[in-house]
Amino acid sequence: MAATLSPGDTGLQLLQNSVATAFALGALILTFGPVSGAHFNPVVSAADWWLGRRHGTGLTGRDLAGYAAAQTLGAMAGAVLANAMFDLAPVAISRTERTGGHLWLGEVVATAGLLLLIFALVRSGRTAAAPAAVGAYIGAAYWFTSSTSFANPAVTVGRVFTDTFAGIAPASAPGFVAAQLAGLVVGVALVAALYPTAGAAAGDAVVPQGDAAGSRR
């Protein structure tokens, strides 16, 4: 949509993408938080498992594997659906190359910052603010990182399947995923240093998950 409305204006396209992402992400967290805790990101799920393992909170290893598979398949399906909605080939492999140390560093910063934000909210009991806070962070990170803040291995894989402004070429994706995993390590280390007891509340990341009656897990 951004490329159609603002052809040739990369800056405006980036603004349109960042605004849409920020608002949509907040809405999705509100919608799916009661179902899955709004885990849309394998690195967030991995941090939740790692930080919560000693306390018996957060995801189990089996949950983590299932979540990561569902997140990746969901991102791929989302790209196919978006292509179809805008009358493009359902599967269109991206030709947009995104590579270089400065972009990978941007992904490390974006991913580590996202984890720090989420677990700061969890540790301080402010998970109700997660939809707005996470959406705002990702929207802002489009602009303050060199990589435009994918910050999500599942999203990176999904974007391979769209040859649009948001896409990433298959050859560029492994570098982004590796940088995001590095950001996971940095982020977990920062959370452990700044919020040593965050793992005790890991079950509330991203937001508390409830059953059909609305109770916490």
Results as ranks from 00 to 15, higher is better:
R62F: 11
L64A: 02
L30E: 09
W49F: 12
T145L: 07
F23H: 12
L88G: 07
V188W: 10
A65S: 10
A110S: 07
I168F: 01
F144H: 13
A68M: 15
R98T: 03
V108M: 12
T148G: 07
T60E: 04
S147L: 03
Y67D: 01
I138P: 04
A68K: 09
G33K: 06
A133L: 06
G167S: 14
L115A: 15
A202D: 13
V157P: 03
G61S: 09
T164P: 06
A200E: 15
Q16I: 14
V91Y: 01
Y67R: 04
A38I: 09
V155H: 01
R53V: 10
G175V: 07
I118Q: 15
G8L: 11
V108F: 04
G100V: 03
Y137A: 11
M76F: 05
T156E: 02
L81N: 11
T57A: 15
E107F: 02
A141Q: 03
R53P: 00
L81Q: 04
T164H: 11
T164I: 03
G66C: 11
F40L: 09
G158W: 03
S147H: 08
T148W: 10
H55C: 12
A112I: 08
A154D: 00
N17W: 12
P90A: 08
V160L: 03
L64P: 00
L15K: 15
P131M: 07
G26P: 12
A68S: 15
F119H: 15
F165Q: 11
F144V: 13
V188I: 15
V188E: 12
H39G: 05
A24K: 12
G11N: 13
A205N: 07
N83D: 05
A75Y: 00
T96H: 10
L15N: 14
L194V: 15
A84N: 08
F176Q: 15
A129K: 00
A3I: 11
A182Y: 10
T72W: 05
S146F: 00
P42K: 05
F32N: 14
R159F: 06
L121D: 11
Q13A: 10
A46P: 00
A129M: 06
V157D: 01
P170N: 03
T4W: 03
A171T: 11
G187E: 10
A38R: 05
Q71K: 11
T4S: 08
L184C: 08
L194D: 09
S45F: 00
S124V: 14
P42S: 05
G139R: 01
M76R: 05
R216A: 07
F23N: 09
A140L: 00
W49S: 01
G26E: 06
D204V: 02
T148N: 12
L184E: 09
H39S: 06
Q180C: 02
G26H: 12
A154V: 04
A213Y: 10
D163L: 05
V206M: 07
A132I: 07
P196K: 08
A189E: 14
A179W: 06
R53S: 07
A46M: 13
A198Q: 10
V43N: 03
A154C: 01
A193L: 12
D163N: 13
N83K: 08
L105D: 04
L194T: 13
D87I: 11
T145Q: 06
